[in-house]
């Protein structure tokens, strides 16, 4: 049985910036425990001498030349913004008020 705790899930939710409800944390703690139990078996066959594969096709050295291509217009760039001020994206205060 996996060792995943509600505190751990709450911390993961903070890292992932999802404001989970207490009920969701309870449910996810349960789900995650089950899932992790089922998938932890990858370590059974992953021996030290097995190389890791991060890309399915073994390509290297794929580059772009340093040539400017047209950007979006400012209106296109901001077209989806939930909030804007002039030509900038507007976001709530970064720090908590003291």
């Amino acid at each position: 049985m996996s060792e995943i705790t509600a505190e751990q899930v709450a911390h993961l939710a903070y890292l992932a910036r999802i404001d989970l409800s207490p009920l969701e944390i309870t449910n996810l703690t349960h789900d995650l425990g089950q899932i992790v139990d089922s998938i932890a078996k990858v370590s059974e066959v992953a021996t030290a001498d097995t190389p890791a594969t991060s890309h399915p096709m073994p390509l290297t050295n794929v580059f772009r030349e340093d040539i400017v291509v047209p950007s979006l217009t400012v209106e296109q760039a901001l077209s989806g913004a939930p909030d804007r001020a002039g030509d900038k994206f507007r976001v709530p205060a970064i720090l908590d008020e003291e």
């Binding site: 899930v9 993961l12 999802i18 404001d19 989970l20 995650l32 899932i35 992790v36």
Partner: peptide
């Protein structure tokens, strides 16, 4: 955090938390 809580469904949250783990 509130946006992601309201905007993502349960399966997406489950997998994001699993992947973060």
């Amino acid at each position: 955090s509130a946006t992601r809580e309201a905007g993502f469904g349960p399966e997406v949250k489950r997998r994001i938390i699993l992947g973060t783990y």
